[in-house]
């Protein structure tokens, strides 16, 4: 919307919000950090695709991928990525009860149970994937 105004079209009464509004409170900052986890989700996919491409190209490429991943800069980025992924997962599962209303008969399934079952599924999926990847070693 144009900011301009004329004699017959008075100025909008819209208080200007600072671009840095999210630095004003811890809860705002937590919100923006949670939303920024999206960048790290995208990076995680790129990282896994680089790994898959290297594995496809042969053993030498796979070994050089592992070497590249142990470079301090890449390792630091991936540790930060892991913490943002954990932030995403925890905030996502904690919000699940608000997004899902599950009813058993007439009573509503308590939120803690929904979040709990999400966490349980997370543990099962993670353990299954880790077992699948590590069992060949």
């Amino acid at each position: 919307m144009s900011a301009g105004y004329t004699r017959y079209h008075p100025r909008w009464l819209r208080p200007r919000v600072s671009t840095y509004w999210w630095l004003r409170r811890t809860s705002y900052l937590a919100f923006i950090l949670r939303e920024l986890s999206s960048l790290f989700v995208a990076w995680a996919i790129v990282l896994l695709l680089l790994m898959a491409r290297a594995v496809n190209s042969g053993e030498a490429a796979y070994l050089s991928f592992l070497q590249w991943a142990s470079h301090p800069a890449v390792l630091t980025l991936n540790i930060i990525t892991l913490s943002f992924l954990a932030l995403h997962a925890i905030t996502w599962f904690n919000l699940a009860p608000q997004a899902m209303v599950v009813k058993l008969g007439k009573s509503r399934v308590p939120g803690a149970l929904i979040a709990g079952s999400n966490y349980a599924a997370w543990v099962v999926v993670s353990a299954g994937l880790a077992w699948l990847i590590l069992s060949g070693g």
Partner: peptide
């Protein structure tokens, strides 16, 4: 993303490069 990505990045991005687990 919440279910599968953390464990995969933990393994391929952190644990294998740090030598905590054998790739």
């Amino acid at each position: 993303a919440a279910m599968v990505l953390p464990v995969l990045v933990l393994l391929f991005g952190v644990a294998f490069p740090l030598g905590l687990l054998t790739p």
